[in-house]
Simulated assay, not measured.
Amino acid sequence: MTTRHVAQINVARFRVAKDDPVNAPFMAALDHVNAMADASDGFIWRLVGDGNDATDVEVIPGDPDFIVNMSVWRDIASLEAFAYRQPDHRKVLSQRAEWFDVMEPSFCLWWVPVGHIPTVEEGIAMLARLKAEGAGDEVFTFASWKASRAGRG
């Protein structure tokens, strides 16, 4: 019986104001890509603000151009399948440099107990931990998780 799920957070800051026309393709893709996530095998939950996405969740007071995405998945394999093999998500992911500044780290994963819904504050704290301590057993990336699994031989 599974006792844990995987949570993910990714953050971004728009290169120009969120409502600038250059960001329209990203904003227009959100409902469809989120619907694909919601229907994916292994999907459990995602952060939603006042609309059907989380782009209006104000993480940094006074900074509407900093956005957050969080979700919980049954396991890493199901999240990875959506993130990297779902064609519509891959297309948006491949274009992120057109809309967002480079931020490091901008993404991390961590285990949560089954039934736990992480808060934005929890996710931001996990990103800060990844930046301060690097990847480990409690906060990690796809790459570090794969590397740790490979080392178990």
Rank of each mutant, 00 (worst) to 15 (best):
F142Q: 00
V120L: 07
G49W: 12
H89S: 06
G62S: 13
T55Q: 13
V68R: 12
I44S: 12
D101C: 10
V72P: 06
R85A: 06
G134E: 14
A77L: 04
I117N: 10
H116S: 07
V114Q: 08
M103G: 00
L47A: 08
I124G: 04
D63T: 08
N52Y: 01
F66A: 05
D88R: 09
V57Q: 00
P87F: 11
G134L: 12
D75H: 04
A128P: 06
P87K: 12
G115H: 02
V68L: 14
E98L: 15
E58R: 06
I117F: 13
A77Q: 05
V68N: 10
D65V: 04
R46H: 08
Q95W: 01
I76Q: 11
M70C: 05
F140V: 10
D65L: 07
V72R: 06
V59Q: 07
D50H: 11
V92E: 01
Q95G: 00
V59L: 14
P61V: 01
S71A: 15
A83F: 07
P118T: 15
R129D: 14
I67W: 10
D88M: 12
W111V: 04
V139L: 02
I76N: 03
P118M: 13
V114K: 15
G134N: 09
E121Q: 07
A81L: 01
W111R: 14
P118H: 08
W110G: 05
S94W: 13
I44Y: 07
N69P: 00
H116N: 10
K131H: 09
W111D: 12
A83D: 01
I117C: 15
V102F: 00
D63W: 04
V92K: 01
D65Q: 11
W110F: 07
V92Y: 05
G123L: 15
D88Q: 06
D53I: 02
V102I: 14
V48Q: 13
